[in-house]
């Protein structure tokens, strides 16, 4: 997995490419944990994300909870396979997907 980080004022954009699974999820978790205090908008660009497992979903859930307090979290570019996973697990109801 590869994460590209773009900070723009109060917005933090993380472009995640590859697989978000047991091995790589902690990396995204650490990236989100180190987010600047001023960030009130977290954008996760998933246009290059190929696969997500429950380990990745748990990181998204924790991030969503955190951003509910701080501001908002948005997912962009979600492909069909990943969208399937969101739908099966009910995540499509709790995440903001554009």
């Amino acid at each position: 997995m590869e994460i590209k980080k773009i900070e723009n004022g109060n917005e933090l954009k993380l472009a995640v490419a590859g697989r978000l699974d047991t091995t790589s999820a902690p990396e995204l978790e650490a990236e989100i944990a180190s987010m600047p205090d001023v960030t009130d908008s977290l954008v996760l660009d998933f246009s290059e994300l190929e696969y997500i497992s429950s380990a990745g979903l748990r990181v998204l859930l924790a991030a969503q909870k955190k951003m509910n307090v701080k501001g908002k979290m948005t997912l962009t570019g979600v492909n069909e396979d990943v969208m399937d996973v969101f739908e099966i697990t009910g995540f499509s109801d709790i995440l903001t997907i554009e």
Binding site: S54, L57, R58, I88, T89
Partner: peptide
């Protein structure tokens, strides 16, 4: 199993 894992296995 954890409900998330169970949902993904089931699918």
């Amino acid at each position: 199993a954890d409900p998330l894992s169970a949902a993904l296995i089931g699918n």
